[in-house]
Design a protein around this nucleic acid. Structure first.
Length: 676
DNA sequence: GTAGGGTTAG
């Protein structure tokens, strides 16, 4: 008996299941009544992680003691089998065995995991009746944790208050609860209380409290707690390090977060992830990509968090090639159906103008939610696919998902970029009647742009009246519409309004100058230019860039600085002569200087977007790849027409992303259907 | 003889 007993104990200690089974068989063979050893066997099977066998023994056991019930309950909870744990708990009550502190501390977690709120409350009542609620720290902290997970922070705090001897775990459970509900100030208050009472925080407490400081942007407390981490010797604990790093990056102290990272002996997957996320948060996209690469080199498998984050970095830099590599990694890991990674991929392809690929990512998503559909609607919107965006909105409604503010902004943008005025008006009306969506300035701006550009200027002006504090952007949107339709008088009125709001607004002066120029009012142009000079307003220069073979080349108008300028200009001249025979006629209305016709024409020829395209075509002669160019301002009308001819002439697809949207040129046509 | 809380994302 003692012999077997110690054998079982050894198996449990070394977690060797095979030996345990041999011992078990031998006990049966020896004809030994093993009911005396059964408890030990159950315990050993649990320690070896073999719950099925433990259960078999347990089911055959006569007189089951509360300790064995507890073992069955807690082992099932910790193996993620909360449903079974709840069944054990119920059966235990049916058999008339009273639960003790051990049973409660395990079972509350099962309830919260299964979302069984009423069960949890009933069990809480029983714990109160049995006098176990607040006397045992384990029970109380499990209760606090359960209520926090049920979003009942008030109940959590009430239980907490009733406990007389509060230990570090109880404090931490409440702090974590507050922090996870975004109540960082409350978390800090509890932490302060804890320190005042002389309860020493541990790594769990510190991790949560650092996150709270970070999210509050409270660098002072953050640094204080950093000191505490060092003092309590918790510096080398992965979670403390990760939270420290996150705290510094949320407080915009990137350099400090880099310092923390560089001092690590070992970084876990979560640490790498936090670091990359922090860099992206702080606009350090390139650093984020290179850290991500290092992570891969260190054989750390990336999770959807870091993939999503680094993909966002790629989209904001329009690094399509790198993004595609990461897409490949995502597929290899089999997480391309993950909604976070998927939304980031859709965003990437949308921002790089590859709507087909965005859609194919969307189609393999394993779970559709509002955000993932929003990403796809936004991608369609940016690229001028209005009808497709609207169709997706219908699908969203059919799936029973509730559209949010972002959905409506994307839909209005989609209508705007596709010139779908009536549809846009309908969407706007449905936002008005939707109780759950607040009409924001962005919604108005979009709508005013849509109406204004389709010459419904009066309606657009009426709409502005509804906005409480119309800002410069809003007025400038209307001004832009006036410019498109040559409405000088209205524009002048608006100009006065804008200058009241913001006397030195450069963009407005430039818009009005351009309007006078396109209306041929050169005297006013000269006047405006001198005002601009007096105000010392600078017009941001037009820049276009193009990514050829993973190298970015930048061009300004008439730019001779490129090392291959000769070849580029030669190519450009050839292109211009050829497209002229196809019907291209330089449109000098887009030259905003008072020059003679010939000079106006030649100033058009050297616009930055034309140079970028000529370069890309020269560099990729003989290939059929799509050319992608980017421009910091809106693409010029003459260039737009020229690019259409070039796409027809060369048979190449050209995608231009300007400050506002995408243009896909193919076979002499543009996806915007000349409406932008 | 059994038990508690943490760090990463649109």
């Amino acid at each position: 008996m003692n012999f077997y007993s110690s054998l079982i104990a050894r198996c449990a200690h070394t977690k060797s299941l095979t030996t345990l089974r041999t011992v078990h068989t031998n006990i049966i063979k020896s004809g030994f009544s093993y009911s005396l050893l059964a408890h030990k066997l159950i315990d050993a099977y649990i320690k070896c992680g073999y719950l099925a066998e433990a259960r078999k023994l347990f089911d055959d056991l006569p007189n089951r003691h509360v300790v064995t019930w507890n073992s069955m309950i807690s082992s099932h909870v910790s193996h993620g089998k909360s449903k079974e744990a709840v069944e054990f708990f119920g059966n235990m009550l049916v058999e008339g065995v009273l639960p003790d502190a051990y049973s409660f501390s395990a079972i509350f977690k099962a309830f919260s995991e299964l979302g069984l709120r009423r069960h949890g409350q009933r069990a809480h009542g029983l714990a109160v009746v049995l006098g176990l609620e607040v006397l045992d720290g384990f029970v109380a902290s499990a209760l606090v944790d359960m209520y926090a997970k049920f979003d009942k922070m008030r109940d959590a705090h009430l239980v907490f208050d009733r406990v007389l001897e509060k230990d570090v775990v109880l404090f931490s459970a409440l702090i974590v609860g507050y922090a996870q509900h975004g109540l960082y100030g409350e978390a800090l208050e509890v932490f302060e209380d804890m320190v005042n009472r002389g309860v020493k925080p541990n790594e769990y407490t510190l991790a949560s409290i650092l996150i709270s400081c970070g999210n509050l942007g409270d660098l002072v407390n953050g640094q204080l707690i950093h000191g505490l981490v060092v003092k309590s010797g918790m510096e080398s604990v992965v979670a403390s390090q990760t939270s420290l790093l996150t705290m510094y990056s949320r407080c915009s102290m990137v350099e400090d977060s880099i310092k923390v990272f560089n001092q690590l002996d070992y970084a876990s997957q979560v640490t790498w992830t936090s670091f990359v996320v922090g860099l992206v948060h702080n606009g350090r996209e390139e650093a984020a990509v290179s850290i991500f690469r290092e992570m891969i080199r260190c054989s750390i498998s990336p999770n959807p968090f870091v993939l999503s984050s680094v993909l966002h970095a790629c989209s904001s830099l329009a690094m399509l090639a790198v993004g595609e590599q990461i897409h490949a990694i995502t597929m290899k890991l089999g997480v391309d159906g993950n909604k976070y990674a998927g939304a980031a991929l859709i965003n990437l392809y949308g921002k790089c103008g590859n709507i087909g690929k965005a859609r194919s990512v969307f189609d393999v998503l394993s779970e559709l939610d509002v955000v993932s559909i929003n990403s796809m609607i936004y991608a369609y919107a940016q690229n001028g696919f209005g009808h497709e965006a609207l169709q997706l909105f219908e699908r969203m409604k059919k799936l029973g998902l509730v559209p949010n503010g972002v959905t409506f902004i994307s839909l209005l943008l989609a209508c705007n970029n596709a010139g779908l005025v009536e549809e846009g008006c309908q969407i706007f009306a449905s936002i008005r009647s939707n109780q759950n969506i607040e009409l924001t300035r962005d919604h108005f701006t979009c709508m005013i742009d849509l109406l204004g550009r389709s010459r419904r200027l009066e309606e657009a002006a009426m709409l502005i009246q509804e906005v409480r504090n119309p800002d410069v952007v809003l007025w400038r949107t209307l001004l832009n519409a006036c410019k498109i339709h040559g409405e000088v008088e209205m524009a002048e009125k608006i100009m006065r309004k804008v200058l009241e709001l913001s006397p030195g607004d450069g963009g407005t002066h430039i818009l009005l100058t351009n309007l006078y120029a396109s209306a041929g009012k050169w005297n006013q142009v000269i006047e405006m230019k001198s005002t601009i000079r007096d105000l010392n307003l600078k017009k941001s220069p037009a820049i276009s860039w193009v990514d050829v073979d993973r190298e970015v080349h930048t061009f300004m108008a008439g730019d001779l600085s490129h090392p291959r300028a000769n070849e580029i200009f030669e190519m450009l001249h050839k292109l211009i002569e050829k497209v002229k025979t196809l019907g291209y006629n330089p449109d000098t209305r887009f030259v905003l200087q008072d020059l003679d016709e010939e000079k106006k024409r030649s100033s058009l020829y050297y616009h930055s977007e034309k140079l970028a395209i000529a370069f890309a075509l020269w560099k990729t002669i003989g290939r059929t790849t799509t050319i992608r160019i980017f421009k910091n301002l809106r693409v010029c009308g003459d260039c737009h027409s020229w690019i259409k001819f070039v796409s027809h002439l060369t048979g190449r697809d050209i995608i231009a992303r300007d400050a506002k949207r995408f243009h896909h040129f193919k076979g002499g046509l543009c996806s915007c259907k000349d409406y932008w």
